[in-house]
């Protein structure tokens, strides 16, 4: 295999992996953008959604499409429960308090998921294509994972829908108002509680999509919740409030870490991609402290 082909292959794989990271980061951005909360539980929500989906398919024999609809229902109920029992008591609290609450939530969800569906590795097969694209391999000798191509299409579709939702709809505008200031939003008649339920539901659905993609790759198991770690450098780089930032950030991190692992890692003993992602993100921070697409916050004193 030629060096250039290999470079191309590494880059394409990096971009594809980047899309998978972006999917995780999207969930964080949504909740942060609409409520100013850094949701530590986002990774566990992916796990919980995927566990519920597999559980419904396995235990009740539901077909994939029905199980997906039912899981969306479960995620909406979950969003309502979170609002009812956690968030509503925390209006106007400082962000760190809300953040702590989501840490607690992460552990509760993990435990409940474990209790309901067990901790075995579960196969997730909803008919998504698996393995390398034979066409690409045979014609161009380039290795591209079919599942990741699907992830790319899904991510693009999701971003389009979310962009329209945030920019063009009444609810979207209300979400942005809430993100700016809870009290001010309340004072102009926006129902904070409804908004929170909506945004957590949307984040729950994004978590389900992410869970399906990652779960199809490695089976649904506890370590799915750790993919949140992969989203952090993406968020640092892309900014916490920008949906395009999550996508572009994911792509940069994906490609950057693959290049680093293959071209630098082999010289220094390897396994550098995990921490190199953070180096990359921090380098960007030096130039743009608010992240690539983050909003510059100016506070007047």
């Amino acid at each position: 295999m030629g060096d250039f082909t290999f470079f191309l292959e590494t880059t394409i794989s990096g971009l594809m992996t980047g899309v998978m990271y972006s999917l995780v980061a999207l969930g964080f951005v949504l909740i942060f953008k609409a409520s100013g909360i850094f949701n530590f539980a986002q990774g566990v929500m992916c796990l919980f959604a995927a566990l519920t989906l597999v559980g419904l398919m396995e235990k009740f024999g539901l077909p994939a499409w029905l199980a997906i609809i039912a899981t969306i229902g479960v995620m909406i109920v979950l969003a309502w429960l979170i609002e009812r029992f956690v968030l509503q008591y925390m209006v106007s609290q400082s962000p760190i308090i809300l953040f702590m609450a989501t840490i607690g939530l992460a552990y509760v969800l993990e435990g409940v998921g474990d209790l309901m569906w067990g901790s075995d590795v579960k196969l997730l097969d909803i008919g998504l294509p698996q393995g390398a694209s034979d066409w690409m391999l045979d014609n161009f000798n380039i290795y591209v994972e079919k599942l990741e191509l699907v992830a790319g299409v899904v991510a693009a579709a999701m971003v389009a829908v979310l962009a329209v939702f945030f920019q063009k709809t009444r609810i979207g505008r209300a979400l942005r108002a809430v993100a700016d200031d809870h009290q001010a939003a309340l004072s102009v008649g926006i129902s904070l509680r409804t908004i929170w339920v909506i945004v957590w539901s949307v984040a729950g659905i994004v978590a389900l999509v992410t869970g399906i993609m990652w779960g199809s790759k490695s089976g649904v198991q506890f370590s799915l919740s750790l993919i949140a770690l992969k989203a952090l450098p993406v968020l640092i780089l892309g900014g916490f409030t920008s949906i395009p930032g999550a996508i572009v950030g994911g792509l940069i991190i994906g490609v950057g870490e693959k290049w680093a692992e293959i071209y630098v890692g082999s010289l220094v003993g390897g396994a550098i991609e995990n921490w190199f992602a953070y180096v990359l993100a921090l380098m960007f921070l030096l130039v743009r402290p608010q992240g690539l697409f983050g909003e510059k916050i100016i506070e007047r004193v």
Partner: peptide, 11 residues
């Protein structure tokens, strides 16, 4: 969970 770089090298 992510081993793409490893397997690209194997390939």
């Amino acid at each position: 969970q992510e081993q793409k770089a490893t397997w690209l090298q194997v390939r």
